[in-house]
Each structure stands twice: as C-alpha cells, then as structure tokens.
Design a protein around this nucleic acid. Sequence first.
DNA 1: TCTTTTTTTTAGATTTACCTAAATTTTAAT
DNA 2: ATTAAAATTTAGGTAAATCTAAAAAAAAGA
Lengths: 219, 219
Amino acid sequence: MNFSTAEENYIKAIWRLQQSDSNVTTNELSAELHTKPASVTDMLKRLKEKKILNYEPYYGVKLNAEGKKIALGIIRRHRLWEYFLVDKLNFEWDAVHAIAEELEHVSSPELIKRLDDFLGNPKADPHGDPIPDSNGRMEAMSNISLHQLKEQQQAIVTAVGDQSSNLLEMLKQKKISIGTKVEIKQRFLYDGSVEIKIRNQPLTTLSEQLSKNIFVKLL
Amino acid sequence: MNFSTAEENYIKAIWRLQQSDSNVTTNELSAELHTKPASVTDMLKRLKEKKILNYEPYYGVKLNAEGKKIALGIIRRHRLWEYFLVDKLNFEWDAVHAIAEELEHVSSPELIKRLDDFLGNPKADPHGDPIPDSNGRMEAMSNISLHQLKEQQQAIVTAVGDQSSNLLEMLKQKKISIGTKVEIKQRFLYDGSVEIKIRNQPLTTLSEQLSKNIFVKLL
DNA sequence: TCTTTTTTTTAGATTTACCTAAATTTTAAT
DNA sequence: ATTAAAATTTAGGTAAATCTAAAAAAAAGA
C-alpha cells in the first residue's frame, strides 16, 4: 500500500509516542503534529480503514504489526538522510532534521537501498539513534543516561534524547557530541545536577534534565 | 513565494514546452501532464494569480521572467539529483528520472547549494542536459545533431534529446553514452539512416529519428 | 461565409487534509 | 453519586487538485 505525506507523518508520530506510552491519545497526537484534535480523529478513521492500527473511539490508538513496519521504514529513510546530510554534505547535526523530514517521503526502495550502501550501512544517525534495517530491525539503544553514571565511571556518549534544536545547540556549546568521552566528577543533591569532565575541556555542570537526555555506554 | 508539488510540475512542463514553441496551449499541457484540459485551465488561473505567467483565456500561456526563474530552479534541482543518483549511487542513467521527479520538490536552498558543491559543481546531468546555476543561468547546449555530421567527421556525444526510457534503453544497447566518440561512415538517402563507428564496436546503423536526437560536439 | 470540428472554459462533483463549533463521552472532583 | 471539567467525536465547511459533462469560443473546411 501507498501512503501520503500526511499519513506518513501521522504514522511516524504515533510510533514515536507509542515508545513511551503504548496507548496514544488524540490530544497527544494533535500536540505532536500541530493539528486540531478533530483533524486527528478524521485521520485515525482513515488509517484504521487501511488496517495499520487499532483505533478505539475515545480510547486512543496503537499501531499494529503492519503499522510498525511502515513506521520503521519511514524512520529508516529519515535517519539515513540525516546521516547523508551530516556525513556527506557537512551539515551541522542540529540543522538536518527539517530537511530529512522532507526527504523521508521520497519512496523508492531502490533509492534507499543504494543510499544505505553508499553511506556504508551506518548503524546510527548523527544523533545516535539507531537506523532500522530494511526489515525494520534495529539495534537496542543504550538506556543508561549520563545522569545514572557513578562518580569516576568513564563512558562514551552514544545518543541524545531528542532532536530539538534547543538541546542540540546546548550540547554544541558544552562540546558534547556522539563519541565524546565523559566522566562525572561530582553530583549535587540539591538540584540533581552533575559536574562532568571532558578531555581538553574545563569542568562543566549539567542540569538533571540535560544529563538525563544524554545516553552513554560504559567503558 | 512557495509552490506546491503540483504547481511546480506545471511550471516545469510549461517551461519545457515553451522551449520549442513559445506559446503553450491547454491541450499541450494536458497531454504533457496526463491531466484533463479542464484541470489545466483551473491551474493556469491559479498560477496567473501568483503572477508568474501570462495566461490569455483561449490563447495559451507563457512564463514571465519570474516564472522562468522558478522553472530553472526546479530544473537545477532535478538535474543535480540525477547527477547524484548516477555518479554517487551508481544508478543507470535511464533509471533516475522518476526518482529525481520526487527529489526535485524538496526545497531547501542550503541543501541544493551543498549538494552542488559535494558533486563538484557539475555543468551537465547524466543525459548531457546543462544544469542551471543558482541564478538560473545555463550553458548553451550543442545544437548539432549526430545526423548533421559530415562523413569522416569525428565528434563526441554531449547530450540526448529526451529522457524517455525507450530512447535511453536503445542508446545503451548501441553502446552510446555521453562522451562517446562517434563518426559517420555512411549515409542512406533512402530512409535518412546513418551507419556509424564507435571505437571497439562493430559498425551499426541508426535511424534518422534516433540520430537527430543525439547531440554532439565536433572534434 | 457558413457550418462543422476542435479546443478551451465553465459548472458542478469528488477526495484529501485540514478547520470551527457543537455535541457527546470519559475522567476528575466534590 | 453527581456534577464540573477535560477529552474526543460529530457535523458541517474550506482549499487544493483533480474529474465529467455541458457550454462557449476559435479554427478549419466546404
């Protein structure tokens, strides 16, 4: 089956919201997509016709197996294009999201297969989010946040919590990116913030919110 | 101003038809775009509102300066993507047109600037059609067809007349591509066909129609 | 020149993806 | 357990981009 750009954006949004809370509500979707709740109801009815999700009026929505597969295809395209934009066209990692939102809807499977090969079959996009393979399978992400590190424990940044330009801008200023080696020097119980050390950088303090949105792999 | 995909397709089609006949009719457009004449009339009225063309009911349409600039921007994007698909993703030159039709509507100027640099600022796409620069300027194309060559005169293929897969498939079979050195060995007055020689290939005969759709540069 | 044919436009419908306002259902609070 | 608040759906409407059928205009032919 074929999906319009609008439909693909709904599928992607449902998938994203489903990750943290398996039942997705009309209002959550309307906030995520900047549309009115009535428009969401409309679209959910249409997508239900296409049998890619379970929608129970008043009780929210959930992608079924088919819907998840479609979502992962879109996410695969998005993340491959992000990788292309950063790795080949030298975009900054905080500038690629909007362009990838457009490119992801170009639907030739042959294009994506060749792009993947051209890029060297990357396993993660520039923000550290794993790229699903052509069957929709994807490596599990680290779920240890920088915030959970023990003092003196060294780790490598593997991913960030979201793609908001506010977060990415702050990380750039703090000189933190994927692959950066970090270590917690001190924790402040007062507000949950942490003081960290990065090689060749002065000590710096990260808020609890920030440190919980940086994911790491232990060394 | 911003244009929808449908609008961009109309602008491109008008530009193309305008090349051979400066006044473009409703029927010509409807054939080119596989839509009904009534739909064309509708869209022309809308594009006239946007002041990018001169449309005189019953008397056809013509892009104005602004319209031509927009058309050349779309053509630039299309041809850069074609170059990318063939040069970087190793697509065959007869397989890229449809994909480039989709990619051309992704509208970030920064993307196109960086893509152009990444590709090494190519001057022509894989079919030999010149790529307009960011101001809409474009090198004049050779207008000498292979058919016009004198016997024994050597020349290099620089472009082909259209992107139809039928033409490209035939050229592939005849081992003719951009950059191929060709020479006419014999002309047949009976049907206008020509016998040509390509290095390392046996002599082969091209119809008048084919040889008029292959453009060359004299050596 | 008059009539027929062809081309083009107009009128009215349809589908997609949105919207607003009103009605309904669910949830939360007293 | 009611009632008030919040969430959701329904009803009806709009704009873009298409369509068909009918009307109008231009072009071609006798």
